[in-house]
Amino acid sequence: MFFWNKIYNFIKGYVVVSVEGFFTEKFTNLCMRNNINIFEIKRKGTSKIIFETTVKDYKKMRKYAHKTGCRIKIHKKRGVPFFLFRYRKRKWFALGIALFIMILSILTSFIWEVEISGNENIPTKVLAQELAESGLKRGMLKFNFYSQEVIYKMMIKRDDIAFMSIDINGTKAKVKIVEKVLKPRGVKKDEPCDIIASRAGVITAINVLSGEASVVVGSVVNEGDILVKGVMSFEKIPEETYLVHAMAEIKARVWYEQIEKLKKSEKISDEKIRLFAYKIAYDKIMDRINKNAEIQNEDVVYEENENYIIAKITIETIESIGEEVS
């Protein structure tokens, strides 16, 4: 109760008053009768008291002081109004401080950075874009953002995320992702299946463990052609067949081709553009080639138009192209 009174008084402003006279008790009693609030009365010497009161009450109590023959004097002025009055010439300074705090608080209420970690197979760019679609992007307001909602949306959108969490540290949103380990593709070992070609090429080696090969070394296959059938016939009765899990090691010569077309420019020399075209094409082609492929040959051909420079890369590899399909 008194505490809140004090805060209220501080905001409204109060004065420290000294009263000197023989009948200070009489004076306080008079004040009390007339609903004047006095705080923190202290005695200084035999005939002097010091106390605090509001400005309004000070004006009222002067009358009573004269009545009781006491001298009344303002000792100090305290509180917000007096403070403001004293520093009224520095209002621009105060305004600057307020502006500074305001700008700081506004700027810190945005998300300025999205940090994605934990992804191995999913590219960060894709994730960032999908996060932006589900409601977490750079430059958005912090209190507009509900992490649980974003997480739910992302989980629905992508099946390959097992766990996701979003922490906001200051202006930085930290996204942690754990990817699902996908089941290896293919067929169980005890189920019958065929082997087809995953790429077009020329067969260089074929080694069948079970099943019936339908191609030989040197034959040209297209993508999706059946290489080994999961069918075996009995030795004694060749007409009767049964299904098996085809197993074979098939290697083939495969060619990759990549064409990159770049516009000529006056500022950049043709040599540089050629180099660029080659680099872009090479990066693209290396993305397509299997990791276990053995590269046999690389060839680059440049062609020139009036406007364009075309780089054509062909790479010849030997790789295993068998794929089990039930």
Binding site: T28, N37, F39, E40, K42, F51
Partner: peptide, 12 residues
């Protein structure tokens, strides 16, 4: 001793 507050009702 300090009289912390005086009003018409209370005296602390």
């Amino acid at each position: 001793l300090i009289i912390n507050e005086i009003s018409s009702k209370e005296l602390l």
